[in-house]
Structures are given as C-alpha cells and as structure tokens.
Amino acid sequence: GAPPLPPYSAGGREVTMKKGDILTLLNSTNKDWWKVEVNDRQGFVPAAYVKKLDSGTGKELVLALYDYQEK
C-alpha cells in the first residue's frame, strides 16, 4: 500500500494524480510535499508518492507510484 501521508505543510493547493502518471516537477525544496504540474494544473503531491525520472530533456519529471486524491 501507499506510505503514510506526511502532515500537510506545503501551503498551496494539492493536485490529484493516478498511479503511472508522468508529472513535471516544479519544486522539490519541501522534503514532504513536491510541487508538480499535471494537465496544466499546478499543485502539491506527497514526495513519497512519486519517483524522479531521468528525462534527458532538462525538464524534471516524476512518476506517480500511487493514486493521490487532493483533499
């Protein structure tokens, strides 16, 4: 199953993602919540729920390892 959710501390809205989604990583300075862009929406997802990909394009991409439903 998915890892436990860290307390929400990102101070911005969250976004929903599905397992297998490829998201653009915008900011990973917060260790628990990373800012991503998905379907032209920006928001935060739990860092433990995604994995960085080596895209080779200069853009940082992450793979959704679990479904996440915004609150």
Rank of each mutant, 00 (worst) to 15 (best):
L65E: 04
N39Q: 12
K31I: 09
R41F: 11
T16A: 11
K19R: 11
S9D: 09
K52W: 08
L25F: 03
G1V: 09
R13K: 14
D40N: 15
L53K: 03
P4E: 08
K71Y: 15
L25A: 02
D21N: 06
G56Q: 12
L23R: 01
G20M: 03
G11I: 15
L23G: 10
P4I: 07
N39V: 12
Q69F: 15
L26S: 02
G43W: 06
D54N: 12
I22W: 04
A10E: 06
L65P: 00
M17P: 00
G56S: 14
L53A: 03
S28H: 08
L63P: 00
Y49H: 05
Y49E: 02
T29M: 11
K52N: 06
S55I: 12
L25H: 01
K31R: 10
K52I: 13
Q69W: 12
R41N: 13
M17E: 00
W34T: 02
P7W: 04
P3S: 04
V62R: 00
G11F: 03
A2H: 10
D40H: 15
Y49A: 06
D32M: 09
D40V: 06
T16K: 06
Q42R: 12
A10M: 15
V38S: 13
K59S: 10
K71V: 13
E14F: 08
E37Q: 12
T16V: 07
K59V: 14
V62T: 02
P7T: 05
W34Q: 01
K35E: 13
Y8I: 11
T16G: 12
L26I: 14
S28K: 05
G58V: 10
P4W: 06
Q69P: 15
N30A: 08
G1N: 13
M17T: 02
A48D: 11
K71A: 14
P4H: 07
K31F: 06
V50W: 00
D40R: 09
V15F: 10
D67P: 05
A48H: 08
E14H: 15
K51R: 11
A64E: 00
P46W: 02
N30W: 04
G1W: 08
V50A: 03
G43S: 03
W33I: 01
N39G: 15
N27M: 07
G11E: 13
A10Q: 08
G1S: 11
K59L: 11
A47D: 01
L61A: 05
Q69L: 12
A64V: 08
T24P: 14
K51A: 09
K35Q: 10
N27L: 07
D40C: 12
N39M: 12
A47N: 02
G56R: 10
A2Q: 11
R13A: 15
V36P: 00
K52H: 09
G58I: 08
E70V: 11
S55R: 08
E70N: 09
K51I: 12
Y8N: 12
D67G: 06
L61V: 09
V38C: 08
F44D: 02
K71C: 12
G56T: 14
L63K: 06
S55H: 10
D40K: 10
I22K: 05
L63Y: 10
K59T: 12
K18R: 14
K19Q: 10
V62D: 00
N30I: 05
S28F: 06
L65V: 07
Y49D: 02
K18I: 08
P4M: 08
L5G: 04
